[in-house]
Nucleic acid binder design. Structure first.
Length: 561
RNA sequence: GCACUUAUGGUGAAAUGGAUAUCACAGCGGUCUUCGGAACCGUUAUUCUGGGUUCGAAUCCUGGUAAGUGCACCA
């Protein structure tokens, strides 16, 4: 429809001697204005030394002669906007499409036949999975689903940090306590808490004693080179527990990974690549290997330190190389917090020197940091709320509100509420998470979406039991809810183009609100069979769209709530 | 010091350069034996600051103020 209007405008402009490729057709802010609008008259009136309004009227009279009968009315308003009113036949056709395509409605074909790789939630094994990770996971998962809706073949991986000086510190404490200690613990949760504690203790001891420092370095070296030793044994135990925990917690959040690329793996690959490109791309400086970013308006970064180990920079080069080698994606998206923006600019720039397509096809999306009650979280210093602790606390609140709810549903609501808090805003700014104020089950919230959907579905089921089937009545007028539903594909497309989930969350909440308003004024099931069936048709379209819209956010919906 | 990011009601946010700046929370006032009230309706209140570009600016440019982040061997 949009295309049709665009063409109509182009034709009209052409007949007046204006040739243009891009005409802007948009949804007016206020639906009362019309179904589509364009600002071309204001753009081109100047070149014609004509009043925009007069020019708009001239265009309208031309278009009136050429328009198809799907366009009911074209009018001029305000400073020179041209508004198009579309016939209800078009909307009924579109609603019918929703009803038949169901969960495929809104699916785009922008990246049909392309491959997209998404990397997110990359944890530091041995560091607890804390509330900050939930943010990365939530955004990453939603972007993954949006990517799937683009028609692309999507793979999703995570990149766990499994080797670092920090891990050496934790392993040092494990050995100090003896491995019996960890083996004596019963549950994985206890073991994990213990490992987190090792990390914190190790960091402290490392700072306080030179002796510990050199021992930790030795341990780390042995781990890097996988030299068989007590530390390697301890490390393997810790890594397994952490990885298992990670897989469980992201599964609880609704994510699954096709594969992992480990930092230890990437480090070797990256180091080799960097070394092969001295001195063309990388240069030696004070015993280290660096990339002189200043030449590109950036800053210098160390890729291999003076002890001969790859830094994060080299590892990221290795990671890129492995991603393209294993998946050969057309687009490679990864998600980190925004503190790494400048850092990745340098790495990406350097990567482009090695292989142009690594730079061109890589998309870096960033998000803000999550602070907890105003204090910045540092996993190194401990005292950070674990993701699981936080979710459990929210689950308690859900149960308080609704004591009859089952565990699974309570989990869905708690997580939905958390996820929505993260996704409703454009990724980028920091979120200060305070359960007292940030968590809402009402209004602009995850549970509002879930509730609205559950209620709508419940009505549909009830009607079905009574023998009603959704069926549209062409005599009926099209309301704003129905019109709004047909905008869904364009919202999905926008989210794909920007890799921004918040357009979807905003759309979902608006759609839910429109439905609830309509619901408040409409007796869906009534004596009147035709009326009932038509209402059910609208409800059914709404359910299809909102179900998809919620799914794209990575939020699940319980049966009852 | 240099670079990047940000500044919207009391709070949290939205708005490809467009029409009366939208939404939620909180506040205030209503709806209420309903197809599921985690709902609906009404109401109060907002673009940091000076200048510029434009028919038109929250949005673009520029000066200022404030905040955050990054700048060599940490991850």
């Amino acid at each position: 429809m949009k295309k049709e209007i665009e063409n109509l405008i182009k034709q009209a402009l052409l007949s007046l001697g204006i040739e243009t490729e891009n005409v802007l057709v948009e949804y007016p802010g206020d639906m009362a204005h019309g179904d589509f609008a364009t600002n071309v008259a204001m753009l081109y009136a100047k070149g014609r030394a004509q009043n925009p309004k007069d020019f708009a009227l001239e265009l309208v009279s031309i278009m009136n002669d050429k328009k198809s009968n799907l366009i009911e009315d074209i009018s001029v308003a305000g400073p020179g906007f041209i508004n198009f009113k579309i016939s209800k036949e078009y909307f009924f056709k579109e609603l019918e499409k929703i009803n038949t395509e169901k969960e495929n409605y809104g699916k785009s074909d922008i990246y049909n036949g392309k491959k997209i790789l998404v990397e997110h939630s990359s944890p530091n094994l041995f560091k607890p999975f804390h509330i900050g990770h939930v943010m990365n996971n939530t955004i990453g998962e939603s972007i993954t689903r949006i990517a799937s809706a683009s028609g692309a073949d999507v793979s999703v991986i995570s990149y766990p940090s499994d080797i670092s000086l920090g891990i050496g510190k934790a392993v040092y404490v494990m050995l100090l306590d003896g491995l019996e200690k960890i083996q004596s613990l019963d549950t994985d949760t206890e073991k994990l808490a213990y490992l987190g504690e090792c990390y914190v203790r190790g960091t402290k001891m490392f700072e306080e004693s030179d002796e510990v420092k050199s021992r930790v370095k030795e341990i780390t070296k042995n781990l890097y080179e996988k030299i068989s030793s007590p530390e390697l044994d301890a490390y393997e135990i810790g890594k397994e527990i952490n990885l298992k925990y990670f897989i469980n917690i992201v599964a609880r959040l609704g994510s699954h990974f096709d594969n992992f690329i480990f930092e230890s793996e990437a480090g070797k690959v990256g180091q080799k690549i960097v070394e092969e490109n001295i001195p063309e791309i990388f240069t030696k400086s004070d015993g280290a290997v660096v990339y002189e970013g200043e030449k590109e308006g950036l800053h210098t970064r160390v890729f291999i330190n003076s002890e001969g180990y790859p830094t994060y920079e080299s590892k990221d080069i290795g990671l890129m190389s492995l991603k393209f080698e294993k998946y050969n994606p057309n687009i490679s998206i990864f998600i980190t917090d925004h503190e790494q923006t400048n850092y990745f600019e340098v790495v990406k720039n350097a990567a482009g020197k090695i292989n142009k397509e690594w730079e061109e096809k890589t998309v870096h999306r960033t998000h803000g940091r999550m602070t907890f009650k105003g204090q910045k979280m540092s996993s190194r210093l401990g005292g950070v709320p674990l993701a699981a602790t936080l979710i459990d606390a929210v689950v308690e609140e859900v149960k308080e509100k609704n004591p009859d709810i089952d565990n699974k549903s309570a989990d869905m609501i708690a997580i939905g509420s958390l996820k929505y808090t993260i996704l409703r805003a454009k990724a980028g700014s920091n979120i200060n998470f305070d359960p007292e104020t940030s968590l809402s089950f009402e209004g602009d919230s995850g549970p509002y979406l879930q509730y609205t959907l559950v209620r709508a579905k419940s009505v549909l089921n009830k009607a079905k039991e009574q023998g009603f089937e959704p069926k549209y009545n062409p005599e009926k007028e099209i309301g704003i809810l129905e019109k709004y539903l047909t905008r869904f594909p364009s919202i999905v497309e926008k989210s794909i183009n920007e890799w921004a989930p918040h357009h979807i969350s905003g759309y979902d909440i608006e759609a839910a609100h429109l439905f609830n308003s309509w619901y408040g004024n409409t007796k869906i099931i009534s004596e009147d069979k035709e009326e009932t069936e038509h209402n059910l048709f609208v409800t059914s379209c709404f359910v299809a769209v909102l179900e998809k819209g919620i799914e794209l956010l990575g939020i699940t919906v319980p049966e009852k709530m």
